[in-house]
Design a protein around this nucleic acid. Structure first.
Lengths: 342, 342
DNA sequence: TCCCTCGGCTAAAACGATTTAGTCATATCT
DNA sequence: AGATATGACTAAATCGTTTTAGCCGAGGGA
C-alpha cells in the first residue's frame, strides 16, 4: 500500500491537482471552486486516507513549521521539563519541535545546528555552549530566528535570550543564609566559563562583601566540567569531608552538584542543618523528598519555556520584513523555596 | 544571505548539477568524474558553505534518515533516559530521532503518528496507548517499520516489541519479599488496562498463591489513571495510612507510584522497613538517595533502547524486500537491587 | 573504414506539493 | 454588438535533490 498523493486524488476525483491543493488548503472559496467539487474532493481525500507530504510542502513553501530545540542533555530533569513545556507551547502555535542534546560538546553542538539547518527548521531555541556564538550568528544571517535559553552571551546582546536571573537568584539565597545567621558559607560550583555561572559566582562574592565577610577561596570548590558521575562525586565528597569544620553552610550552584552533595551528606551522615546548612540553585524532586528537605532557589521553568517560545514566534512572524529591533534579553526572577535544610 | 543550493555550486564551478550531486554523494568515482573536477567542486562547495537540503533529498529518495520516537512523557525520568539512549544509538546508524509525548492520550497519540507520517519518518519506536494497535498496523501496511517499547499488544505478536520482563520482574520482587519473611504484602498499582501492567499484577497473584497466601483485594490499591499529582498522592496517602496495620510490606508497581509512596511515608513518618517494607518496580534517583534507600526492581533501560533500535534498523534495511518473518518480541530480564527498605 | 567501448560529463525526469497566470464559457454593461 | 466581468477551473513553473539515459570524442579491434 503506497502513500496517496495529491495527484492520486485529482485523478480519482476527476479534477486537477491545483483544485485539490486549493481544497486541502482551505483556499477553495477564494479560488471560487464550486461547493460540489469541494465536497467531492474532500470525500475522495478522506476515503483514500490522504496525508500531505510535509517534505514536498516544505520544499515548495520554504516553511517546515518545525523548530529545533537544542539542550545540554535531555535526560536531565531540568531540560526534560523545559523541553516538555516548549513542546506543549509550540503546539499552540502549530509548530512541531525536534530536540537534541549537545552534552556540552562544542563539536556536537555545531553538528546539531548543521543537521537542523539541513532539515530546514524555521527557528531555533538553543542552550548554547561556550563557543557557539559565531555559529548562531550565521543562522541569524540566514534569516533563521534564534532564542537562547538558560545561558547567554553578554557580548552578543543582539541574540535574544530568556533565562532566570542568575545573579538575583543567588543573591536572594545568600541574603537568606545571612538572615539566618550563617556567615561561613562554602560554595560548590562547576568549572564552566559561561556567563550564567559567572553571574551566580559574582552574586556570591558581592553578597559576602556586602555583609563584610571576606571571601575565602578555600571555601570554594570547583568541580571540573565533563567529569563522569563517579569522579565528580569523589570531588564533592573530598571537599565536604575535609573542609567540613571550616564552614557552617554550603551553597550548591547547580541542581546536579546538589544531588552529589546529598549523596555525600548521606554517606558521611552529616547533620543538616545543625552541622551544615544546605541550599541549592535549581529544584529537583529529590530535594523535596530528602530528609531533611533541602531549601532551593527555584527557576521558573515553565515561564522560561513560554517566554522563549513567544519570543521565537514573534520573530518567526517577522521574517522577511526588516527585523524588529526589540532585543529581547529576559531575566526572570528566581524563587526562594525555604525547606528544612536551613 | 540565502542558502546555497547545488545549482549555485554548479554555476560557480562551471559544471552541471548532476556532477555536483555525484561529487557530494561520493559517487564521483563510480561516475568517472575526473580528479580535478572533483576537487574543484569540493572546494567551491566548501567555500560557499553548502549544506544539502534534506527536504529535497528526502522527497527524491523517499528516505529521511529520521525515526520517530513516541513516548508517554518525555519529562518522566524513565522515558527521558530511554530517549537519550535511543538518540545516541540512532546516531551510530546515522539516523536522527524526533520525539514526542502522548501523555497517554489516545487522540494525541494518533495525531502524533499522523504528524510523523506526514514528515515522512522512515520508522517508528512507540510506547503505545491502549487502542493504538490499528493505527500501527496501518503504518506497517505502508511499509514503515515499527517497534514497540515498554508496552505491547499480546494479541498482535506481529508488531515487534522490546520490553522488560514485567512478570518475571515482579515475581523476582515477590520471591525476595517472601524470602525475607513478609507474607502480608500490599500492592499499589495503576488502573491501566495495558498488558504490561496486567503481567505485573498477575505475577503478584501467582507468587502469593505459590506460597499459599490467599490474595486479599483490600490490600490492593488501584490508583486511577490520569489523576493530577495531588489527587493521586491523596489516594496513596489515604490507602497507606488507613490500612497501615493490615500489611507488613508494600510493593509499588511503578516508579511514579513509588515516589508518591515516599511522599506518604515521609509525611506519616512511617518506619521503613520496621513498620513496613517497601519495594518498587523501576528505579529512580530518589530511591537511591532516600533514607532509608529503597529496594527496587530495575529495568534495563539502556538495553531496551539498544535492542529496540537494533530491531528497527534491521527492518529498515529489509524494507522493499519481502518482510523478514522473525517476529521480535523481546522480554529483557529485570534486576533486583536490594537496598535498605526491605 | 566502420563499429565498439570507454572515459567524462550533462539533460531531463521525477519526487509531491504550492501558486501564478492563464483558459473558456457565460453574464453584464454600454 | 463589442467590451468587460465573473465564475469555475487548469497548466505549468517551481522548490533542491537524485538518478537514468544519453552525448561526444578518442582509442582499439576487425
Amino acid at each position: 500500500m503506497k502513500k496517496v498523493s495529491i495527484s492520486d486524488i485529482a485523478r480519482k476525483a476527476g479534477v486537477s491537482v491545483s483544485t485539490v491543493s486549493f481544497v486541502m488548503n482551505d483556499k477553495a472559496v477564494k479560488m471560487r471552486i464550486s461547493r460540489e467539487v469541494i465536497t467531492k474532493v474532500e470525500n475522495v481525500a478522506r476515503e483514500m486516507g490522504y496525508r500531505p507530504n510535509q517534505l514536498a510542502r516544505g520544499l515548495r513553501t520554504g516553511k517546515t513549521k518545525t523548530i529545533g530545540l537544542i539542550v545540554e542533555n535531555i535526560s536531565n530533569a531540568f531540560f526534560a521539563c523545559l523541553a516538555k513545556t516548549i513542546e506543549d507551547e509550540a503546539k499552540k502555535y502549530d509548530y512541531k519541535v525536534v530536540y537534541c542534546s549537545t552534552d556540552n560538546d562544542e563539536a556536537k553542538a555545531r553538528d546539531l545546528i548543521n543537521m537542523l539547518s539541513q532539515r530546514q527548521v524555521d527557528g531555533y531555541i538553543i542552550t548554547p555552549t561556550l563557543l557557539l556564538a559565531d555559529e548562531i550568528r550565521k543562522l541569524q544571517a540566514e534569516n533563521k530566528p534564534v532564542v537562547l535559553i538558560d545561558r547567554y552571551f553578554p557580548e552578543h546582546a543582539e541574540i535574544p535570550s530568556v533565562l532566570v536571573d542568575n545573579y538575583g537568584g543567588v543573591a536572594k539565597g545568600m541574603e537568606y543564609l545571612f538572615s539566618k545567621g550563617y556567615r561561613k558559607i562554602a560554595l560548590v560550583t562547576i568549572e564552566a566559563e559561561m556567563a550564567h555561572m559567572h553571574d551566580r559566582l559574582q552574586a556570591y562574592y558581592d553578597i559576602l562583601n556586602k555583609h563584610g565577610v571576606t571571601p575565602d577561596d578555600r571555601l570554594i570548590k570547583w568541580v571540573p566540567y565533563g567529569y563522569v558521575h563517579e569522579a565528580a562525586l569523589e570531588e564533592v565528597m573530598d571537599f565536604l569531608s575535609t573542609r567540613r569544620k571550616e564552614f557552617d553552610a554550603v551553597f550548591f550552584l547547580t541542581n546536579y552538584l546538589g544531588v552529589l552533595g546529598i549523596e555525600t551528606i548521606k554517606k558521611f551522615n552529616i547533620k543538616v542543618p545543625e552541622e551544615m546548612a544546605v541550599l541549592c540553585f535549581d529544584d529537583n524532586d529529590i530535594f523535596r523528598l530528602y530528609t531533611p528537605t533541602i531549601s532551593v532557589i527555584k527557576q521558573p521553568i515553565e515561564e522560561i519555556g513560554q517566554k522563549a517560545m513567544l519570543a521565537l514566534i514573534e520573530r518567526l512572524r517577522h521574517t522577511g520584513t526588516e527585523l524588529p529591533p526589540d532585543n529581547t534579553n529576559l531575566k526572570l526572577a528566581a524563587e526562594l523555596v525555604p525547606r528544612e535544610s536551613i
